[in-house]
Amino acid sequence: MKHSSAFTFIEVLITVAIISTLIAIAIPRFFELQATSNDTSAWADAKNSINILAASKAR
């Protein structure tokens, strides 16, 4: 009997299924974190603008 060192179709199929599941979980979480980051950045920009206006008014 000939021994092959290649992967079987089932092994490749299972690997693709596992990777697809991990991606399906990770992508929505990534977009959620990106939105949170954008919100935090907007708040920081607003606070910095207020501080700049207050500093220029104090002169």
Rank of each mutant, 00 (worst) to 15 (best):
T15M: 11
R59A: 11
T40F: 11
I10S: 09
S5N: 08
I10N: 14
T40V: 11
F7N: 13
L13E: 06
I23W: 00
I52K: 06
K2R: 12
T36F: 02
N51F: 08
H3Y: 07
T15H: 12
S41A: 15
F31H: 01
H3S: 13
I52R: 12
T8D: 02
R29Y: 06
R59F: 08
S20C: 08
S49W: 06
M1R: 09
S37Y: 00
T36G: 15
V12D: 01
N48T: 07
P28A: 00
I18G: 03
S41F: 15
T36Y: 10
S4V: 04
W43Q: 13
L22N: 06
N51C: 00
A6M: 04
S5T: 05
V16T: 06
K47E: 00
I10F: 12
S4P: 08
V16G: 09
K57L: 07
I14N: 06
I27W: 05
K47M: 13
A58L: 07
F31P: 01
I19Y: 01
S56I: 15
I25M: 03
R59V: 11
L53H: 14
D45N: 06
L22P: 04
A42N: 14
A6F: 07
L33G: 04
I18Y: 04
T21A: 14
A6Q: 09
N38P: 01
T21W: 12
A6K: 03
F9Y: 06
L53R: 14
S49T: 02
F31V: 05
S20N: 09
R29W: 04
M1K: 00
A46V: 14
